[in-house]
Design a protein around this nucleic acid. Sequence first.
DNA 1: TAACAACAAATTGTCGACAATTCTCTGGGC
DNA 2: GCCCAGAGAATTGTCGACAATTTGTTGTTA
Lengths: 233, 233
Amino acid sequence: MVAGSSRTLSDQLFKQLQQAIVRGDIPANTRLSETSLASQYGVSRGPLREAIHRLEGRRLVVRTPHSGTRVVSLNHEELIHIYQVREVLEGLACRLAAKNMTEDQVADMYTLLDEHSQQVDFREGVAYFQAEGDLDFHYRIVMASGNQRLIDNLCGELYHLVRMYRYQTSTSPRRPEKAFREHRQIVDALADRDSEMAELLMRRHIRTARLRLERMHTPANNNKEYSESGAVL
Amino acid sequence: MVAGSSRTLSDQLFKQLQQAIVRGDIPANTRLSETSLASQYGVSRGPLREAIHRLEGRRLVVRTPHSGTRVVSLNHEELIHIYQVREVLEGLACRLAAKNMTEDQVADMYTLLDEHSQQVDFREGVAYFQAEGDLDFHYRIVMASGNQRLIDNLCGELYHLVRMYRYQTSTSPRRPEKAFREHRQIVDALADRDSEMAELLMRRHIRTARLRLERMHTPANNNKEYSESGAVL
DNA sequence: TAACAACAAATTGTCGACAATTCTCTGGGC
DNA sequence: GCCCAGAGAATTGTCGACAATTTGTTGTTA
């Protein structure tokens, strides 16, 4: 038991397993054996079962009675569905953030944009940095919304799933710059306290990503799980 | 063990407890003792703990380590937050339903409207019928969206919470008729396959309910749980 | 050779007991 | 009379063992 010293074993296991799944250490569609995992983490089956049940609540694993639990594996359609939900939820987050953000938080957003503007120029490893930076960007706006339920939905569930399924946007290498400009527009709207515009821009920003996903839909990769790779926004 | 014969004890307990909480048989903020509940339902603590963990995933109970779990109790602000999320999610559901609904489903919606139009006239017990009918109306649209994640979010979580916290709209007795007209407009948009209009109307419909909630906010009832009563939409 | 049935192995579901932590109540002191 | 400390009780957390169900295999039969 090395990291994440929570109060109870179940909490520790929950965090460890969640991190392992999101980071890809446990690949999608992997079967989670209770006995082997219990011995692997050096605990009994009781706390491990509870952790798995909580992962099920977060929709990170799927459980079938008497049969076993598997790490969630999204097909093309399910990923599109997630982006549809994400579009409206982040639109709401942006609208609320425009009202509730402090001036300091707005200033921090501009600082973040400056950091990203430097990274966009580097072609090496831009996918990874841009991906993490992008999630950071969205993360901050959601946190500033002040709506705890919205925060839980996005940061506690959807972002984990999105992080699992990042795609290389190989068809359009100029996408990072466009995404960056969109980010700038969004922050400008936040600074202006223009909540309507902020919601509209964020929805369009994510809708763009979804349409890109939909375009790479072929009968071949339908009903087929994706492998982890690059960034989409 | 009388009803809801699921495959496993944990499933049965989960459904029973969820129903008991939503229907108000177990009031909000009630402390759930594992031992007493276990003996009450005639099972061991193991399955009951797992059911409670799943309820925690659905956000119907709140658990504090080593201290116990309580039925969720929403204050005014949290209920507003739920309606904010509901507004955008149901807007999305309506937009998708306008595209995906079959002609038969549209016809069923008109049939449902006819049934409601008769109930609206009855002043006796109109709150209850209107409340259930309203949830039925929204429920069908969400189910027709075809987005499973959206369905889970709304029907599996938010609706249960909304059902727990229904308010008597005592300030405006003419609200049911207005709500009914709004429902009719929404169905018309669905029939026209006008997804933009459908989303806009549904969002406005729920926003109206939220604004009514916000108006009945006073310092007295802030941070105070509400009791179950009538309908808001 | 293919299909079906019975058996065996593995895995999950359930239970009761023990350990650790928290809350409460009582007693003493200021 | 009020506050703090400590012991006790109650509740939750954890564990190992047993029971029930599913799955894979093997053997038989058409």
